[in-house]
């Protein structure tokens, strides 16, 4: 075979810089999509809880779309499809400032919001109705009961699933490479193409992913244990 492993080319100089830039882009995608997704998920859960068939149906449709269509395709729909809706001037501007990342954030955030709202919903549903009754019997208002009794339990119950979604989101940022966002996977391939160091390039990037993933997995385990809800 005659292939000599040489990590030095990849671990320093411009290739390493590219990898670091990729990492930075990945983290930007990850964090912003996560925050936006979470906020939207809370909003969706509240909307769905209101007993109004049309809005409930809309939220359900939103969730089902994002659960049944591959994330990559969701990215395509936004990047290719939505751009057509915008006027040319806007598109030119967006392309100049590297708008792919914006589309990627939107797609990832919406996708995560769908999954997270389902997790919240099942967290809420698994709370026994007697809890609300007991909270009202004490004299709490409906909002007070939600704030002090129901929601504190709901988020604790939804926590393991939410943390699972966090890991999935982190790995999902790699799909942005499919629409040209220069995140970590994209840079891995670029560096490999340019430097011909296949194993080193992919090896380093894989190691970076694993490190961060393990960190997320560890944090998830610690948090789920700390906030585990045991019902009598």
């Amino acid at each position: 075979m005659g292939y000599q492993l040489d990590f030095s080319k990849v671990l320093q100089g411009e290739y390493f810089d590219l990898i670091l830039q990729g990492l930075q882009t990945t983290m930007v995608l990850f964090v912003i999509s996560w925050v936006l997704g979470l906020i939207l998920a809370i909003f969706l859960t509240v909307v769905r809880a209101i007993e109004f068939r049309p809005t409930q149906f809309l939220v359900a449709a939103f969730v089902e779309y994002h659960r049944n269509v591959p994330i990559l395709i969701q990215l395509f729909v936004w990047y290719f499809g939505f751009a057509v809706v915008l006027p040319d001037v806007v598109n030119d501007y967006l392309n100049d400032i590297g708008a792919e990342i914006g589309y990627a954030i939107v797609a990832l955030a919406l996708n995560k919001a769908a999954y997270m709202s389902e997790d919240f919903r099942s967290g809420l549903r698994s709370i026994h109705p007697a809890q609300m009754e007991a909270a009202r019997a004490i004299g709490l208002t409906y909002l007070g009961a939600m704030k002090w009794v129901i929601l504190p339990q709901a988020w604790r119950l939804a926590l393991p699933a939410l943390l699972g979604q966090t890991l999935i989101l982190f790995k999902g940022t790699s799909l942005a490479a499919g629409i040209g966002v220069a995140e970590l996977s994209y840079q891995a391939r670029y560096v490999e193409e340019q430097s011909f160091r296949i194993f080193e390039a992919y090896g380093v990037v894989t190691a970076i992913y694993m490190l961060i993933s393990f960190a997320i997995m560890w944090a998830s385990s610690v948090l789920s244990t700390r906030y585990r809800l045991r019902v009598k």
Binding site: A130, A134, K232
Partner: peptide, 11 residues
């Protein structure tokens, strides 16, 4: 008011 199944708040 006291319930048959206590209904303490688990969190």
């Amino acid at each position: 008011f006291v319930f048959q199944h206590f209904n303490l708040f688990p969190h």
